[in-house]
Design a protein around this nucleic acid. Sequence first.
RNA 1: GUGGCUGUAGUUCAGUUGGUAGAGCACAGGAUUGUGGCUCCUGGCGUCGUGGGUUCAAGUCCCAUCAGCCACCCCA
Length: 423
Amino acid sequence: MSLKYKIPRGTYDILPEDSQFWYKLMNKFRELCRLYNYHEIVTPIFEQADLFERSVGDSSDIVEKEMYKFQDKKGRVFALRPEGTASVVRSFIENNLGRQSSITRVYYSGPMFRYDRPQKGRFRQFYQYGVEHFGSEDPFVDAEVISLANMFLTKLGLKNFRLELNSLGCRDCSPLYDQALVNYYSSLKTDLCPDCQQRLTKNPKRLLDCKVDSCRNYAREAPSILDYLDENCRRDFELVQKYLTDQGIEFIVNPRIVRGLDYYVKTAFEFTTDALGSQNTLCGGGRYDGLVEDLGGDKTPGIGFAGGFERLIEIMKIENIGFNESSEKSIYLVLLGDQARAQAAGILHELRTNGIKVDFDITKTSIKAQMKSADKAMTNYSLIIGDEELARKTVILKDMSTGEQQIIQKKELVSTLIPLVQQ
RNA sequence: GUGGCUGUAGUUCAGUUGGUAGAGCACAGGAUUGUGGCUCCUGGCGUCGUGGGUUCAAGUCCCAUCAGCCACCCCA
C-alpha cells in the first residue's frame, strides 16, 4: 500500500495498545513528585525563540542546529521547546512564583522537539519528565533532587543504571579551568581529531568527552576540573556527595561529564545505562544558579533534571518490566437475531449507567463469530440474548473460563453482574 | 550535517543467472442450521517505499529521492 500521508520523520504514534503504559509511567512520576512536594507546571510547547537562545546558549548544538524555529503571521519568531527548563524559568519569573515562599518546587512532563537525526533513543518529538527547584543554594537540595530522580528509576524497577556526578565549577572558577584546558591542548592541536580542534575554541570541556582513541589518551592526562574548583565549590561538591551517601545512593564521580546546556554550574549529574546503545543517558540535570537572573528575574538559585520517557520504556522492555494489568473483569454482549439486536442500546445503557464495562461486536451476527470475538477479547463473562431469552425475559450468563452458564432474570442482570465485576 | 545497512501482502520474511510474486502468523468464513479456546478446510488481482533510467522485458541492474534501523555528532 502506498500511503498518501506519513508521520513526520523522527516522530511516532503512541498507539491505543501502548497508551495505557505511557499513562501509567507518567502517573508514577506524578505520584513520586507529589511525595517530594513538587507541583505540576504546564507551559506552552512553543516560546519566543530567543528565550532558548539565551538560556540554553547560542553556541550549543541545540540552538545552532536543532531548534524548530518559525515565524507567526506577525513575524514574531518562536521555537518549539527543545527542553523544559527555559520555559519553566520564564514562567517562574513572569508569574512571580517565588513570592509565596523562599522555595518553589515544580515538575513537568510533555513533548520536546529537536531537529536531530533520529536513531535509537533519539527522536524529533520526544517526551520528557523533569523537575525544577528554585530558591536554595544548599547542596542538600542537590542531593534531594538527585534522590528524586534515583527514586523514580528505582521504583520503576530499573536495575542497570548508575549515577555519575561532577561539579562544573561556578562562574568564577569554571573559566579558569577552561583556560587550563586550552593551555594543555593547544600544543597538541595538530594531533587532535577535527572535531576536537573545533571544541578547543567552542567548548573546551567537550574535549574530555571525545571517543577517538588518540584524543582519549590526551584526555586522560588533561587537567581535572576537580583541581580547579574554588573553595566554595569544592566544599559544596563534597557536601552533595555526603548527603547522597547518607541516603545510601551510590554514585561515581566523573570529572569528564559535561552537560550540553550552557546554563549549568556546579553540580552536574547523569543517570546512565549500558543497555541502550549510544544514547545512554536516562536523565540528567544540574544546577543553574545564574539562569533566573540572566532571563530577567531576581537572583535566584535553581537546580533540576529532565529525562526521556522513550528511553525508560525501551529499557523497561529490555528488562521485561511491566505494570500489572488491571484485574477488572469484562463483560461481552452476544446478541442473536434482529429482535435482540434492537434491545442492544437499552442493555448497554443500563450496564454502563451502573458502571459495568461492556464490549460487543455489532458487525458479527452468528453466535459462533460473536463467541470467537468474546474469546479473543479475553472477556470474563458473556451475556447471551436470543429470541428464547427475549420471550422469557432472561439472559444467559456464561463464565468464559469454566464454560458454565446460568439463566438469570433480566431485571436481576445488574445486581448479578456487579459483584462479579467488582471482585 | 556525515557514514553503513535496509524498504515485497495486516505482520514477519522468501523471491534463485532480470521474464510482470509466494510462505508462516494474523485476519475472515465454514466443518448437521443458538455457543469460544484445539484440529481441519477455504480465502491474497499486493501501483514489490516513491520518481526516473537501462532493457524486447526489472521486485531483481543504475541514479535520485523519501523513510526506517545503527553509528558519528549531540543528548533525553
